Simulated scan of single mutants.
Amino acid sequence: MPRGLRLCPIRSHSRRSAVRAPARVEQVVALARERATAAGLAPDVAESVWRAMIGAFIELELVEQAAIRDRVGA
Results as ranks from 00 to 15, higher is better:
67 A>P: 00
70 D>I: 00
6 R>Q: 13
37 T>I: 03
23 A>H: 06
3 R>Y: 07
22 P>F: 03
55 G>K: 07
9 P>V: 02
31 L>S: 12
42 A>G: 00
19 V>K: 02
8 C>D: 10
36 A>E: 07
61 E>Y: 02
55 G>M: 07
65 Q>P: 00
48 S>V: 01
46 A>D: 01
32 A>C: 15
19 V>A: 14
2 P>F: 09
38 A>L: 14
51 R>H: 09
54 I>Q: 07
24 R>V: 13
1 M>Q: 10
14 S>E: 13
56 A>T: 04
36 A>L: 05
23 A>W: 01
28 V>C: 03
2 P>A: 11
52 A>N: 06
17 S>G: 03
47 E>L: 01
68 I>C: 04
26 E>C: 01
32 A>S: 15
14 S>L: 11
26 E>L: 07
73 G>S: 06
34 E>D: 14
66 A>E: 15
12 S>R: 12
2 P>M: 10
53 M>S: 09
44 D>G: 03
71 R>T: 02
33 R>F: 02
63 V>I: 15
3 R>P: 10
23 A>C: 02
27 Q>D: 14
40 G>L: 10
52 A>D: 09
65 Q>M: 13
36 A>S: 07
61 E>V: 09
63 V>Q: 11
44 D>H: 09
22 P>V: 03
67 A>K: 14
56 A>I: 03
57 F>K: 07
74 A>D: 09
33 R>K: 15
73 G>T: 02
5 L>H: 12
11 R>G: 09
35 R>H: 05
73 G>E: 11
18 A>E: 13
27 Q>I: 02
39 A>G: 09
50 W>R: 03
30 A>D: 05
67 A>Y: 10
47 E>V: 01
60 L>G: 04
45 V>G: 01
42 A>W: 02
34 E>T: 14
19 V>F: 04
57 F>V: 05
55 G>F: 11
55 G>Y: 10
48 S>N: 04
29 V>Q: 05
29 V>Y: 03
41 L>T: 00
48 S>Q: 05
49 V>P: 00
68 I>W: 15
21 A>M: 09
61 E>Q: 14
46 A>W: 04
8 C>W: 06
59 E>G: 07
35 R>M: 08
47 E>I: 01
54 I>A: 08
10 I>M: 08
45 V>R: 08
29 V>F: 03
38 A>M: 10
26 E>F: 03
70 D>P: 00
72 V>K: 08
1 M>F: 10
41 L>C: 03
30 A>H: 04
36 A>Y: 04
51 R>M: 08
33 R>D: 01
65 Q>D: 13
9 P>M: 02
42 A>H: 05
42 A>C: 06
60 L>I: 08
69 R>V: 01
71 R>I: 00
67 A>N: 09
6 R>D: 08
58 I>W: 01
12 S>F: 15
73 G>Y: 01
9 P>L: 04
19 V>L: 12
36 A>F: 02
58 I>Y: 02
